[in-house]
Amino acid sequence: MTNTDWPLWEVFVRSRRGLSHTHAGSLHAPDAEFALRNARDLYTRRGEGVSIWVVPAAAITASSPDEKDPFFEPAADKPYRHPTFYEIPEGVKHL
């Protein structure tokens, strides 16, 4: 039955202007045009979105959970990237 097995697409929805596209779920469609339309019907039928991306699931390269430590731990010890790292004297504004 492989000839009827439509490929899988991942759907990303921008819920309103000013926000990023967020992963909403997946669906099956024969091609990108239909994936987009199916996504519109399925994931925004209550007006949840203003823009949609569809991506063939097979085209996604994911970081492996194995690499979690090398990938993400270095970021955890760089608190100086976060604004709360810095002490600012009381009363200084617009910083």
């Binding site: 439509w6 669906l27 099956h28 469609a29 239909f34 339309r37 199916n38 019907d41 399925l42 039928r45």
Partner: peptide
């Protein structure tokens, strides 16, 4: 014929 189309036709 396919679940996605249930949703589309109902819309």
């Amino acid at each position: 014929p396919v679940l996605e189309e249930e949703v589309a036709l109902a819309n």
